[in-house]
């Protein structure tokens, strides 16, 4: 296997960055955007840029990972179960696991594998999840057998400001039948799902103030109306597979920003623990 052994930049230029990557479908970043700054990713072979802390090193993918697949398992600290998450394709360096709860601790077990053998588990650091936002994450089916879904970052909707959640209703079907004895008989169906709603500003507060593009609401409405399965996560740590059953919006006419609050109704349609939800 050929290696990249030397990179040389000639004199009489001022260099911002140089990024040598494996070209992979449409996954490589688009540099022709305003204020582009490169980030090392799964496909990086050599990234040269000049960080403020004095790090001018070339970053490149370790050869240890090439040619192997990696099996990733997740452990929620306190739970004895090791849940299989994903087995990567050759050359993939990282994934994002979205199916985690807020205010929990997680640790990942990674096995390096080829056709003949596997390594012993290598354990990641333990990380605490702590997010402020409520999230609705749209996802697309990748593998029906394992219920693996892929997330495109543009389908992650975070609600940060003025968030208010309504009560969550647990729905189940139980019917009471009067009998000839003192006590009735209860018959039970299989239904057991949650419904709820919340509201929040659709835009985000950034350095320069509140940011809400006028097209954001249209994108949100289209997102609500599409057929994607969605993962709902709240600040408490609940997570449900849901569909959006209603959405309404209200512009705060009295504000300069014309901030839009959306009210979102959702219905649980699955148990999130049965799904694998990942992103690149």
């Amino acid at each position: 296997m050929a290696t990249l052994d030397k990179v040389q930049f000639n004199s009489n230029i001022t260099l911002d960055f140089a990024h040598f990557e494996k070209k992979y479908q449409d996954k490589n970043a688009d540099i022709f955007v305003t204020n582009y700054k490169p980030i090392a990713n799964n496909y990086t072979r050599s990234l040269v840029c000049f960080e403020p802390d004095g790090d001018y090193d070339s970053k490149g993918m370790s050869q240890d990972a090439l040619g192997y697949v990696f099996s990733i398992y997740r452990n929620e600290i306190g739970d004895s179960v090791l849940k299989p998450i994903y087995t990567t394709s050759v050359g993939q360096l990282s994934i994002v696991d979205y199916n985690v709860r807020n205010q929990k601790q997680y640790q990942y077990y990674v096995f390096k594998e080829d056709e003949e053998a596997s390594s012993k588990a290598s354990l990641s650091n333990i990380v605490d999840t702590c997010w402020w936002d409520y999230a609705i994450i749209g996802m697309d089916l990748e593998d029906e057998d394992t219920l693996t879904y892929k997330v495109n970052p543009k389908d992650v909707w975070l609600f940060q400001s003025n968030v208010a959640s309504d009560s969550t209703t647990q729905n189940f079907s139980k019917t009471t039948y009067q009998t000839l004895t003192a006590y009735p008989t209860i018959s039970m169906g299989e239904s057991n799902y949650a419904t709820g709603s919340f509201s929040g500003l659709i835009g985000r507060v950034r350095k320069n103030g509140y940011d809400e593009d006028v097209r954001l609401l249209e994108d949100w409405n289209n997102f609500c109306a599409n057929s994607q399965l969605k993962l709902y996560k709240d600040r408490k740590g609940h997570k449900y597979i849901v569909d959006i059953t209603s959405s309404s919006s209200q512009v705060a006419d009295e504000t300069r920003e014309q901030a839009t609050t959306v009210n979102v109704g959702w219905t649980q349609i699955g148990d999130a623990d049965n799904y694998v939800i990942i992103g690149d």
Partner: peptide, 15 residues
């Protein structure tokens, strides 16, 4: 080697 060579490559620069 700094890294493995990518036969299908993309090089981006700003200079």
């Amino acid at each position: 080697g700094l890294a493995t060579w990518a036969d299908d490559y993309q090089v981006t620069m700003q200079f």
